[in-house]
Design a protein around this nucleic acid. Structure first.
Length: 290
DNA sequence: AGGGGTACCTGCGGGC
DNA sequence: TGCCCGCAGGTACCCC
């Protein structure tokens, strides 16, 4: 589900809301999300204070005292919500009635009860989200984390650096953008939007991009991602994404091609096309992105 | 290396 | 209405 802008929005709020709070208990009906044993996990994190929250690519890390790190990847449909919840017969429901309408409350699978009386909740319709308990040492040993590419919004991500990345691969440019080992955090929505903005064909080999295209691509990556963060992420047609308060992301109304098959390209009026690429939908303007 | 496919899971919407 | 199909923001893994 969430890509860099959504995860960044979530993490900023988690940081504000959770740092200093203490996990007093944890409940789940879907221990498959967890790598490892649930009772062990519970024992390790119970009564630990949350001291920091960080993001890396699409990964979320809750740093607890005594060298415990909860690593969460939301995958396609994971959501983190904060609020007051109560156990009603056999399911958790929000105490605040306004939140009953949040579709994610139907799929609550993890509840972290907090000393403050609130809960951090993971909703996950497709149960693919991943939770792993790490220590500083095991954190440093995680292969998939070690392999993560550069943060596209960091100051180190310059046009020169992008050029070096692109020259390394003959793969189609959209695949490279979505490959977390090259650049961390871009998924299908933003890859589509970025390539449209830069006027680049999603199928051209990464190492064939012209200098001017690399400059345009670099600018598009920075602009699209930071604008999406400014609008608190994207809740697309299926209304899936919500922030930790259950609010929609407002970048949806700024999407130019994603889920706009058959609609006119905002630049030239040609109808937007959709084609399968690497098992995903690629939306593009056949005229602007030749 | 790089492209294709499937698996993990579940639900929704469209077509017939 | 009911059923089948394709689709979904991600990623790991297998095959050629």
């Amino acid at each position: 589900m969430p890509e860099l802008p959504e995860v960044e929005t979530i993490v900023r709020e988690l940081k504000r809301e959770l740092v200093g709070d203490i996990i007093i208990d944890v409940w789940t009906d879907s221990s498959k999300n967890l790598q490892g044993n649930f009772s062990e996990f519970k024992k390790e994190i119970k009564n630990k204070k949350i001291i920091a929250v960080k993001r890396r690519g699409k990964n979320i890390f809750l740093f607890l005292e005594e060298d415990k790190i909860i690593w969460i990847h939301l995958k396609m449909t994971g959501h983190l919500l904060i609020g007051k919840y109560k156990f009603n017969k056999k399911e958790w429901v929000p105490v605040d009635n306004d939140k009953l309408l949040d579709p994610n409350n139907r799929y609550l699978h993890w509840v972290f009860l907090l000393r403050s009386g609130r809960a951090l909740v993971l909703s996950d319709r497709r149960k693919m989200a991943k939770i792993v308990l790490l220590s500083d040492t095991s954190f440093a040993q995680q292969k998939s984390l070690k392999k993560l590419g550069i943060e596209p919004l960091s100051s180190g991500f310059t046009p020169e650096v992008l050029k070096t990345i692109l020259r390394r691969s003959k793969s189609e440019i959209k695949r490279v953008l979505m490959n977390q080992e090259y650049i961390a955090g871009i998924g299908n929505i933003y890859a589509n939007e970025i390539l449209w903005k830069a006027g680049i064909n999603p199928w051209i080999p990464s190492n064939k991009l012209q200098e001017s295209q690399i400059i345009a691509l670099h600018r598009a990556i920075k602009e699209v991602l930071s604008q999406a963060i400014a609008h608190r992420g994207t809740s697309a047609k299926d209304d899936n994404y919500r922030d930790v308060y259950g609010e929609r992301g407002k970048f949806s109304s700024y999407l130019k091609v994603y889920q706009r098959e058959g609609e006119p390209c905002p630049k030239c009026g040609t109808l937007i096309k959709r084609k399968k690429q690497a098992g995903r939908s690629t939306f593009y303007c056949p005229r602007c992105q030749k």
